[in-house]
């Protein structure tokens, strides 16, 4: 039987590889689609239009420059309406993520944990489709003069294997946001 010359397959191989190279694309910057840079708490004292805004802000995302956090100052024995906003201010214009969370109310829970717990009581003012609290808006009732911290968590509680897991408690899911403010309840 006649043997194939070595050069033929070798040539074919080289041809195939050159053909396979093609044009390479240009590198592009990475894009963080799910960045939240800012948590904004808006306290409005009942019966007034007097709104105080406190925020936790880290414009360059994780690492880099440290976040800037404003301290919360509230007054004792008052009732406040508390609205929360989540924003991505890393790009211009800033993107407000609050509406996204609202539309995915069944998968999210905003939890407020004052330490000590006697700082105030919180009641969520909104519900999801399964009647569990969401927490984008709610009521804060302060008691006596005190100092402490307030932890604000945005819990992401998506269904697992098609079964909803959100049950109104903080337990299921993971943190999308977990920030701590210092808080003073002044006389």
């Amino acid at each position: 039987m006649k043997q194939l010359p070595t050069k033929v397959p070798l040539f074919l191989a080289i041809l195939l590889f050159i053909g396979g190279c093609g044009k390479k694309e240009q590198p592009t910057p990475a894009e963080e689609n799910e960045l939240i840079t800012t948590v904004r708490l808006k306290f409005t004292e009942n019966g007034t239009t007097n709104t105080q805004t406190f925020q936790w802000k880290d414009l360059d995302g994780d690492g880099g420059n440290a976040p800037t956090i404003t301290s919360i100052v509230l007054r004792a024995s008052r009732t406040y309406k508390l609205d929360v906003e989540f924003l991505d201010e890393s790009s211009t214009p800033a993107v407000n993520k609050t509406a996204d969370i609202q539309s995915e109310a069944d998968k999210h829970l905003i939890a407020f944990t004052p330490i000590p717990s006697s700082l105030f009581t919180y009641t969520a003012g909104d519900k999801d489709s399964r009647n569990f609290p969401l927490g984008l808006t709610g009521t804060v009732i302060t008691s006596f003069t005190n100092m402490g911290t307030l932890r604000v968590q945005l819990r992401h509680q998506p269904p697992i294997n098609g079964q909803p897991v959100k049950n109104g408690t903080i337990t299921p899911g993971s943190d999308d946001v977990n920030v701590t403010f210092s808080i003073t309840v002044a006389p």
């Binding site: 948590v39 994780d62 690492g63 976040p67």
Partner: peptide
């Protein structure tokens, strides 16, 4: 630790 929006890591 590094402080991020999801807490300290």
């Amino acid at each position: 630790p590094i402080l991020t929006i999801r807490g300290a890591f």
